[in-house]
Nucleic acid binder design. Structure first.
Lengths: 208, 208
DNA sequence: TCAATAGTGTCTGTTAGACATTATGGA
DNA sequence: TCCATAATGTCTAACAGACACTATTGA
């Protein structure tokens, strides 16, 4: 039987750091690579990715999603993971800005980072991606920042808040956060919808 | 080295048949299974899926997308594929309605079918999924039917046509299709947008 | 008082969805 | 004539985006 490289599992672990999206990389002899492990023979892809994050950071990710598979030099699955802001990087690892990560972790790693960011963006309106990047309590400005980072575009403040509250997706708490200057911001909690809102129109965002 | 089952590539090949979505299955000793091949050691997942469809049906798929990976008993990648309506099933294979396929091809196969349908639905507004299920020419009623099949909900006719034409996503031809009864319908062509339309609002379709 | 950020009220143009109506074929 | 399907016109409520404004803190 010919030697066949084992399928690899590559995790793009993202968090919020200094107002930007950051990705976990391991320093490996001068260069940086994404954390990787072998795909197990039993279980699930998500379970293996969760175990890998837990082994690296000491805590389970708050959210996970598959982001694609490639076979350039052996099969390689990419999983996007989210850990809440404030998780420290252990020795030998670093949080680096996601926008720079693509150029830092090699060609295959860069493709994985882009695929993971796309997976998070595509699920932003169906899964609690933004809420998992934040903690349990957050201001609406925090939440808007996360949406703008993931969508890579500006979001209109008044419309954002209106739609958010109309969907009953967040609920206010009785605490406020003061950041030095400016009016203190009210803290909100994630409030999962009971039922899917009526989806009305059909979107055509099609390129060529 | 322990024997390790090779990664499998499973294709959920869909087409339009008698006004429903149909999926290609192979008859294998009384039971039906999804077409499967080994994942190659070089190349790409999409390339391998395309080759498998070409080998089965004698033609390349009109569209492809990865739909996920599972490791219940060995690694298994699922790819969703589309071939245009009218492609005949070769000997030993069958088109069966996609809604029934989930219960026909076993547990793992059923999960693959559901994942493939979800992949098509999720990309419906970004990629020409519906147009690839149809031929080069189609009526707007045909197109609306495909959207309704993939979204699994009714679509409002007037709004659908308005949004479609406003996006310049289709262009009329000077031919009409008559189906026996009723007024003949004008045939349209797919007309890819040059640039992405301005994306405005943020959607919150979030469940719990 | 000023700068900075949070949050709201109002207006306007766009559009989704409802509904009715016309158009055009076959039986 | 009747039926079936295609296609369009109009109305209304909802809503996105713009803008201006108020609110509340620290410096």
């Amino acid at each position: 039987m010919p030697s066949r490289s084992l399928p690899q599992l590559c995790v793009v672990c993202c968090t919020l750091l200094d107002g930007t999206l950051a990705t976990l990389v391991t320093e490996s002899g001068g260069s940086r690579v994404l954390p990787t492990d072998a795909v197990p023979e039993r279980g699930s892809v998500e379970g293996a990715a969760e175990a890998l994050v837990r082994q690296l950071l000491g805590r389970a990710p708050a959210w996970l999603a598959q982001a694609g598979a490639t076979v350039d030099e052996g099969l390689r699955l990419t999983v996007a993971a989210i850990v809440p802001a404030g998780t420290p990087a252990p020795a030998g690892m670093q949080w680096i800005p996601a926008v720079r990560a693509g150029a830092t972790v090699g060609a295959a790693g860069g493709a994985s980072v882009r695929a993971a960011l796309a997976a998070m963006r595509d699920r932003l309106d169906r899964e609690p991606v933004a809420f998992r990047l934040l903690g349990t309590h957050f201001t609406l400005s925090d939440l808007q920042l996360v949406y703008e980072l993931l969508l890579e575009r500006r979001v209109h403040k008044a419309s954002f808040r209106r739609a958010l509250l109309a969907a009953h997706l967040v609920e206010p708490t009785d605490t406020w956060k003061s950041e030095g200057r400016g009016r203190p911001a009210q803290l909100f909690r994630f409030s999962p919808r009971r039922r899917r809102g009526v989806q009305r129109s059909v979107r055509f965002e099609l390129l060529g």
